[in-house]
Design a protein around this nucleic acid. Structure first.
Length: 517
RNA sequence: GCUCCGGUAGUAUAGCCCGGACAAGUAUGCCGGCCUUUCGAGCCGGAGACCCGGGUUCAAAUCCCGGCCGGAGCACCA
């Protein structure tokens, strides 16, 4: 084996073709593309899925993955996908977030077939509620929140439960008419007060929310809770498969039960643990908190796991999709992804379409004696034809501070595409060299450089926001350096690879965000 | 506290339902080599895992029981 490794590639291939030519023919480049597992009870052409975001904050990677998972299944089974906003809590919903989800999903490459809001069907909920009230499956309760919580915790039966149907109907009408105020009454499900599953202990299905809704204004004062709205909507939308995280596990029985009492069909559930990334809080509550405390700059702070941040950092939608296919499992075991997995895929996507440029962090002056003005044409990509850029070099150049540190008088090295040099002296933080004849040599160190007049720019280098439970105070580094003039031609948002530094996105003139190596 | 649900290399997964071809596959990360005018990409090789203990069985990653560890839920939020 060791002997084989001493041979170069051509020699290895030659030897192989003699002893086992077959092996050379097969050998797929990458292993067969991984796929999501089959959906249980799925029938081609008859799968209906839904994406149910609550428009109360920005999307994070978890939402993106859920979106992609649903979309991938829609493709696989030639199914139908709903985008359905769960907006039945007027106090939490904000108008700007509806569009932010649409945009976020679109950016991820998720296409949906139809769109609606849970708040669109208020009259339908009311109709169903009346039917259930009349049949005794629902009752109006005017206990205080605290009292209700006590009952539910201790498995007690509410006294309102046994009141006449006519009383409940009357109260229901009073609720709808607006003559009752918030907290005064709620509609409860007649469940099982002693059930082990506390979701079934007569939960509230409608409550009074005296707050304008961003879409419906002040038209409604009685709002269904999540369980009721979702149960009805999944049936009304004809959803066959509900894909969601396991925190909803305990709601399945309730939602099924609501539908059964209405004679509606139940979906198949596929529930899995949430997707998390190492050192990166995804919960919107926590992110909001970090923003308020000033720990991060905003929803698009590059250290965050929001879609906004990922986009800004140069994570591509293709990478997200590929990630979902290769690394996401729809299982209930805990997942804590390391960013490296995503980076590796992203790199593979970025590499063939990203120009290479020279960037010298913490630049150090370099004087090249005896070199007049010289113009070099350097390719923008090492192996693909992406064109080239022209750099005008003179006697004064700059190299990275880190590289300059390592140089000693007498050292030889090459400035990429330019010239071979020999170090004469190092004084005043300036490296003085002389030109040597010759081109690239095997083993000769190659350094990136920039000419005089290069543009100063800063690169935001994000790191993990959290180390365990602690906020990582060094999670945002700012690296400054010089980029070759060609940089100024790049439009905002473009990704470049600063050689030997890493992939970066042009965020604003003079400012880049580091993607990954 | 109560109730559920999990546990395959550092990470993510395949295998588990239907026990044997699994001395456990893959990717990523790590280490070494080749190649290369980038420490990038590519190629080759290497180390690295079935949580623990019992049981069933000719045979257990796979089935059963217990323990340990981890996660989720217990709202007039979704």
């Amino acid at each position: 084996m060791e002997w084989v490794n001493t041979l170069d590639r051509a020699a290895q291939e030659a030897a192989l073709s003699e002893i086992a030519p077959k092996l050379l023919l097969e050998a797929p480049k990458r292993p067969a593309e991984r796929q999501l597992p089959d959906l249980p009870k799925a029938v081609e052409g008859a799968v209906v899925l839904r994406l149910p975001p609550e428009p109360s904050g920005y999307m994070h990677l978890g939402h993106a993955f859920h979106g992609l998972v649903n979309y991938l299944y829609r493709e696989r089974y030639r199914g139908f996908l709903w985008l359905r906003f769960e907006d039945t809590n007027p106090k939490k919903v904000k108008p700007e977030y509806y569009e932010s989800y649409r945009e976020g999903y679109r950016w991820c490459g998720v296409r949906w077939d139809a769109e609606k809001n849970n708040s669109d069907d208020m009259i339908l909920y009311y109709d169903y509620a009346r039917r259930l009230l009349e049949a005794g499956h629902l009752y109006v309760c005017s206990c205080s929140k605290e009292e209700m919580a006590r009952q539910r915790a201790e498995g007690l039966i509410c006294s309102h439960r046994s009141l006449d149907t006519s009383w409940h109907l009357e109260k229901w009408d009073a609720m709808l008419s607006g003559s009752m105020s918030e907290g005064e009454a709620a509609v409860r499900f007649r469940g099982d007060p002693l059930s082990q599953n506390t979701a079934l202990r007569d939960p509230v299905l409608f409550r009074i929310v005296d707050h304008p809704h961003p879409l419906k204004g002040e038209k409604f004062i009685v709002w269904p809770t999540y369980d009721f709205a979702a149960a009805i909507q999944d049936a009304v939308c004809g959803v066959t498969h509900v894909l969601r995280t396991s925190e909803f596990m305990f709601r399945d029985a309730l939602q099924d039960s609501i539908r059964e009492r209405l004679g509606l069909k139940n979906p198949v559930y596929v529930e899995y643990s949430r997707f998390e990334f190492e050192g990166t809080p995804l919960s919107r509550r926590r992110i909001r908190e970090l923003i308020e405390r000033g720990v991060v700059g905003g929803w698009d702070d590059p250290r965050l796991g929001t879609v906004l941040a990922a986009r800004r950092r140069g994570i591509t939608p293709e990478a997200l999709k590929e990630f979902v296919k290769s690394y996401v499992a729809l299982t209930p075991s805990r997942k804590l992804y390391s960013w490296d997995l995503l980076y590796a895929i992203n790199k593979r996507i970025l590499d063939p379409k990203t120009p290479r440029l020279f960037f010298t962090p913490q630049p150090r002056k370099l004087i090249v004696k005896g070199m007049g003005r010289k113009t070099v044409t350097a390719p923008l990509h090492p192996s693909l034809d992406m064109g080239s850029r022209v750099i005008e070099a003179g006697e004064t150049l700059y190299i990275a501070g880190e590289d300059a540190e390592t140089l000693r008088p007498g050292d030889r090295f090459r400035l990429k595409y330019l010239a071979n040099l020999k170090v004469l002296s190092l004084a005043d933080r300036t490296v003085v060299c002389e030109v040597e004849d010759g081109g690239p040599e095997p083993g000769l160190r190659v350094l990136q450089w920039v000419p005089e007049g290069s543009r100063r720019l800063e690169v935001i280098v994000p790191d993990l926001l959290f180390r365990g439970e602690e906020v990582n105070l060094e999670s945002l580094r700012l690296v400054e350096g010089l980029a070759e003039p060609y940089e100024s031609q790049l439009p905002l948002g473009s990704v470049v690879q600063f050689e030997r530094f890493g992939y970066c996105v042009k965020d604003s003139p003079g400012l880049y965000v580091f993607t990954h190596r």
